[in-house]
Nucleic acid binder design. Structure first.
Length: 495
RNA sequence: GUCCCCAUCGUCUAGUCAGGUCCAGGACACCGGCCUUUCACGCCGGCAACACCGGUUCAAAUCCGGUUGGGGACGCCA
């Protein structure tokens, strides 16, 4: 078989959403697996809704995900003359005809059909118009659309979908569809086919919502004298109410950019998305790029739609828990040096980035990431939960304040005392910190956890985190002593 | 209303094509335990599904039919 060529043809009417991203990923994987080419084609023929900003957003989204293409971006609008020529060819060859029915007439018929609970389909009123009748209407200046002449009578279009198997559709169930608007602009069905022929697309991998279009497009290929590509339709991604996910009704939670802004590692999102409707056939769920390309097959694509289980207002999970989990997995397993590259822009955005983290404080910075990442889920956690590592103005967690500090009023005096002990040390090491803290607790007759966790609160603003002995040693004597000395400020205004 | 697609734990899924090894496996989530100064990680354990009815068969999650449920399409959008 000849070269594998697939395409991702987004219409630039909004940002890149996870459904589109998944389609792009499947195409990309298929191309990479077979040593083929991925073509990016922007389908901007709907000039009214297409925007420059959207095009930019889609391209940025793909780049961020790491989905690279080999050709394009091409713009459908720049091939308008080809589309018009194809329509002319179909008209000339008798595969299409002009239809003078007005929008109003058609709408009225459609509404009547709905009211009567009947099937509505174009009745072919203009199909048998004689050349004279057509000429007369044109002479009268009546606007016309061009419709494709679907074969009549017995027969059907049959094709073998790589995911859904043999799909058959009777001619009688396909109406004479419009291929050119009355203003002369060709419609998607035609443009798409003309572009795919020109771009020598071998496999069309798209959402299942395009399944009903396929028979009509195959008819178009035949009429145009071209061999249809191989089709593979993927199941759809549904929301919690099992409705098709769309940017319009779901907003930012389905936008790829949302995940970038909320601290996702792009590959983690790819890894999650690919699992939504595909399985390698075994228990693997975490894949490197190479492993995924190797494992991916269209046969492994599920036929049932899947639900994107996002937890929008959940304090712990702001999206699908599995997506978060996969992101957390990568967060704590990628090389620290790589993680540092991802954390940098997050800290920069918060204004707490120090260039020295790439210079003399590099080792310290990497160790900090190493210590923190075990309990983080997203990159943004480094700037929020982990802020105390990088800035002195960090917020105090309410639970930490109540349970670790205010619950033990003695801490107001004890913590500054503990500061003195640390200050007396030439340097705080893990073992020294542990010795000092335990002795301190013993002298005051409390469990070690009490002063230790109170210290955690004033030093990190959190009630959870890495071992405090490590924190004492790693944060450094100066900051530890200073924060412990100022512990009293948290008690002001109390009782 | 018409046409088409789909149906395994709460979610993502393996198993369905080649019926028995499946009183259904994994992951996430959830619950419990261990570890521990805390939280997490990790480890151990638990909860939890073949939509329903009928048929074929010695045997059905798997094959067939029907029912129900869900989804998609039905545009001079892409």
């Amino acid at each position: 078989m000849s070269e594998v060529r697939v395409r991702f043809p987004p219409s630039p009417t909004g940002y890149l959403h996870i459904g589109g991203a998944r389609t792009a990923i499947y195409n990309w994987l298929f191309a990479r697996k077979h040593g083929g080419k991925l073509v990016l084609r922007i389908e901007d023929t709907d000039a009214e809704r297409s925007t420059e900003e959207s095009i930019k957003g889609i391209i940025e989204g793909l780049e961020w995900l790491g989905v690279d293409w080999d050709e394009g971006p091409y713009f459908q609008s720049s091939f308008a003359s080809e589309h018009v020529a194809a329509a002319g060819k179909l008209l000339a060859s008798g595969h299409a005809y002009k239809c003078f029915c007005t929008k109003e007439e058609l709408e009225a018929r459609r509404e009547a059909a709905v009211a009567a609970k009947a099937d509505y389909r174009y009745n072919g009123a203009c199909r048998e118009l004689s050349p004279e009748e057509v000429a007369a209407r044109e002479a009268a200046g009546l606007p016309a659309v061009i419709r494709f002449k679907v074969p009549q009578g017995e027969g059907s279009v049959v094709f073998n979908d790589l995911v859904y198997g043999v799909v058959e559709r009777d001619y009688r169930d396909i109406e004479d569809f419009v291929i050119v608007r009355s203003n002369g602009l060709p419609l998607y069905l035609l443009c798409n086919v003309v572009d795919d022929i020109r771009d020598r697309i071998s496999h069309v991998i798209r959402g299942q919502d395009g399944l009903v279009n396929t028979p009509r497009q195959i008819l178009l290929y035949r009429a145009l004298g071209a061999a249809p590509p191989i089709f593979a339709h993927m199941p759809l991604t549904l929301d919690l109410k099992k409705a098709k996910i769309s940017k319009r009704s779901h907003g930012e939670i389905v936008a790829v950019q949302f995940y970038r802004d909320h601290g996702f590692l792009p590959w983690a999102l790819v890894n999650f998305l690919v699992l939504l409707g595909w399985s390698p056939g075994d228990d693997r769920e975490i894949f490197s790029r190479e492993e995924l390309i190797e494992a991916f097959t269209l046969e492994g694509v599920n036929r049932a739609n899947s639900i994107f289980n996002y937890k929008k207002d959940d304090p712990k999970f702001f999206t699908d828990p599995k997506a978060i989990n996969i992101n957390a997995h990568y967060l704590r397993t990628i090389p620290v040096a790589e993680l540092a590259q991802w954390v940098k822009p997050v800290l920069e955005r918060e204004g707490i980035w120090d260039p020295a983290y790439e210079g003399e404080k590099r080792e310290w910075f990497h160790k900090t990431l190493e210590m923190s990442r075990e309990r983080f889920h997203t990159l943004t956690d480094f700037a929020t939960i982990g802020r105390a590592w990088f800035a002195d103005d960090f917020p105090m967690d309410e639970t930490a304040l109540q349970k670790n500090l205010l619950k033990h009023p003695q801490m107001k005096e004890w913590l500054p005392q503990l500061a003195q002990r640390f200050a007396a040390l030439p340097e705080i090491t893990h073992d020294e910190a542990e010795r000092v803290a335990r002795e301190f607790a013993e002298e005051h007759g409390v469990k070690p956890g009490v002063p230790i966790n109170a210290a955690r609160a004033v030093i990190t603003g959190q009630n959870k985190g890495p071992s405090m002995f490590e924190v004492f040693a790693h944060l450094g004597k100066e900051k530890v002593v200073q924060r412990l000395r100022e512990a009293g400020k948290y008690f002001e205004g109390q009782n």
